[in-house]
Simulated scan of single mutants.
Amino acid sequence: MAGASASPLMTRVWRIVPPVALVALAATWGRDIGIVVVGLVAALLAAAVLAAVHHAEVVAHRVGEPFGSLVLAVSVTVIEVSLIVTLMLAGGDEAATLARDTVFAAVMITVNGIMGLSLLLGARRFNFVHFNAEGTGGALATVAALAGLCLVLPTFTTGEPGPEFTGGQLAFAALASLSLYAAFVVTQTVRHRDFFLPVTDQGKPLAEDEHADPPTDREAWVSLGLLLLSLVAVVGLAKIESPAIESGVLAAGLPLSFVGVIIALLVLLPETIAAANAARRERIQTSLNLAMGSAMASIGLTIPTLAVASIWMPTPLHLGLGSTQIVLLGITMVVAVLTVVPGRATRLQGTVHLTLLAAFLYFSMAP
């Protein structure tokens, strides 16, 4: 885990960031701020996200795989949900598609970006990369089911005008999402944990890194507390920064939906770094656990949370994807299946997934 192997200097930095971010939050809350302060708040927001994921990695390294990937995925999803809710509350009806755009962006970034980058980095160093097709295939099937149920179906239902579920449909989708996510967690951590452990080219479990000693219980508890502080800081600073994010997107001539892509890129950047580091150490299964776990949590936890929040939010919740997005999602899932089934991959598969990520980013900017 990257967080466990951080230098002593960076460890001190990540311990200082959460309280500093909270002080900045208290100093700027409810006030009009200038462009210089906006830049400082943005820097602190990014630092708080990095600090949150660092402390999540420390906790994750203490509990081990595959629990570690689960902790990281849930932590990133908490940040994502917090950003979505705060921006939706501040954006009014124009933010009706923000949840959809952010969740879809998270799926495309994880399945194409994180997985593609990990495969490419690993294959460049080891020629072939090997992983457990049973575990990764089961995770991919869950992601596909969640994406189809929560992001594709609302486009075709007729209970409400537009790409929106009725109250009953949204409740069903939320319960189904939680059930699928819970079933996967039980499979990953209890029933078939060995499906999600790094493997050798013969399919045998890979030995743990000898140099990566797990943190002590005290260090893990401290990181857990700082993780919670970081999440509070992220939520608050995102609320302060939301007008500047939307203004910047519009000033650049980009569609407002690109705000969701920015949120997903922000919250998934640290996890991308962690997955890339695991790939360089021939822990491709760990990289894929991070990618699939984040995609799954982004849908399976975000949609139920937003379903509950929508009771109090004045903003409608448009979840259905447009035609271009559905095509990109369909191509991604077909390609991902062909990548996962053999249980090994080369640089070609990594390049294909990264090309699909580039296509997603381009058509998000120029729909």
Rank of each mutant, 00 (worst) to 15 (best):
I109D: 01
F360Q: 14
A141Y: 13
L153H: 07
P214G: 11
F131D: 07
M1C: 12
M292A: 12
T11F: 14
V222S: 15
N289F: 01
M115Q: 14
P314G: 02
P205K: 07
P215A: 08
A252Q: 14
A48G: 08
A207E: 12
F363Y: 15
M108V: 01
P342T: 05
P66H: 04
V267T: 13
F67T: 10
T351W: 09
A56N: 07
P198H: 06
A144Q: 12
T302L: 06
V37Y: 11
G39I: 11
I109V: 04
L306G: 00
E94W: 10
V335R: 00
T339M: 12
H211E: 12
V85W: 05
I79Q: 12
L356C: 07
R191M: 09
L25Y: 08
L319S: 04
T157C: 13
P205Q: 08
I303P: 09
L140A: 11
L224D: 08
M292W: 06
Y362L: 13
F128P: 10
V259D: 01
H54M: 06
D101P: 09
T157W: 09
T272E: 05
G343C: 02
E208T: 09
G167I: 04
L151D: 05
G138T: 03
R100K: 10
L329H: 10
A297L: 06
T339H: 04
G122P: 13
V81Y: 06
L227A: 07
P270G: 01
G3I: 05
G320Y: 15
G68I: 00
I109N: 02
T136V: 15
T272H: 09
A233N: 10
E160C: 01
L22H: 09
G293C: 05
D93K: 07
L119P: 13
I16L: 15
V13P: 10
A366Q: 04
A147F: 09
L290H: 06
F363P: 14
V49D: 00
G92D: 12
A21Q: 11
A145M: 15
F165I: 06
V259H: 01
Q349E: 15
D93Q: 07
V190G: 00
V13K: 09
E94L: 08
L120H: 14
M365W: 03
N277D: 10
E282W: 03
L70Y: 11
L317K: 02
L87V: 03
L266N: 02
P154A: 01
E271D: 05
W221G: 12
R283E: 13
A233Q: 15
P270I: 04
R100W: 02
L178P: 07
G320D: 13
F104I: 02
V327G: 00
E246Q: 07
T166Y: 03
E219S: 15
Q349D: 12
M108H: 10
E57K: 06
T97M: 05
G167H: 09
T155I: 10
L268D: 01
V335Q: 00
A171N: 02
G248V: 06
G162C: 13
F156W: 15
I114F: 03
E241N: 06
L250N: 02
